[in-house]
Amino acid sequence: MLEITDLHASVDDKAILKGLNLQIRPGEVHAIMGPNGSGKSTLSHVLAGRPGYEVRGSIQFNKRNLLDLVPEERAWAGLFLAFQYPVEIPGVSNANFMRSALNQVRCQRGLPVLEASDFLKLIREKAALVQLDPSFLSRPVNMGFSGGEKKRNEIFQMAMLDPKLAILDETDSGLDIDALRIVAEGVTKLRREDNSFLVITHYQRLLDHLKPDIVHVLIDGKIMRTGDYTLALELEEKGYDWLKAETV
């Protein structure tokens, strides 16, 4: 599904990712943990194609060279990023936004454009999945949404666009306990054998729900350690210092 080899990324000559390797196979859930500023969001941005980074290395995504694709082409190919800080877009309603996006994506994937009634059905169904109040659909994208509502809206968009690989960048931060469970259940329902998740998080709690297959620790722009779910438990207990100590 995804194969990252020796990935470097810098902004204004400041190196952030420093030779990162990562492989995700279909059906897997991976978690990335790591201290603040270690480069987790940068990795997610580079994967989604955000401009402004100097990037070296290779990223294969379902046999395509991801770095050759512009952001929308990556979305068409099945990549989705749930932003750590979702952007507010005044003047564009959530529902219209999703209609344009979904039709564009479907069109690129060779699927017919949805009839209005089918779209309505789908949008209701997916909103219910993450228990997003339908009133949010007519509101401008993320405008005035609370932190937790924005995160829920990201998962709603993910459910609408049905990606092959979804990257969740701290989607659990800012969620209350119930919302966290709802989001985790939503993700679990969307799991299939042919899609994968890359979950960036600081907290054990989300991983308790999601049961990741593989846990990575990202420190100073590199994957410092990879293990199974027990690695997350170990981090919870010991923090990152023991790993950082190994770096030097």
């Binding site: 989604a48 194609g49 955000r50 401009p51 512009v70 952001p71 929308e72 990556r74 979305a75 068409w76 989705f80 990023l81 932003f83 979702p86 952007v87 877009i89 936004f97 999703m98 344009s100 996006a101 979904l102 564009q104 994506v105 690129q108 968009q157 666009l161």
Partner: peptide, 8 residues
């Protein structure tokens, strides 16, 4: 970028 990341 946000809109592009959704396929627009």
């Amino acid at each position: 970028f946000y809109l592009q990341s959704r396929g627009l």
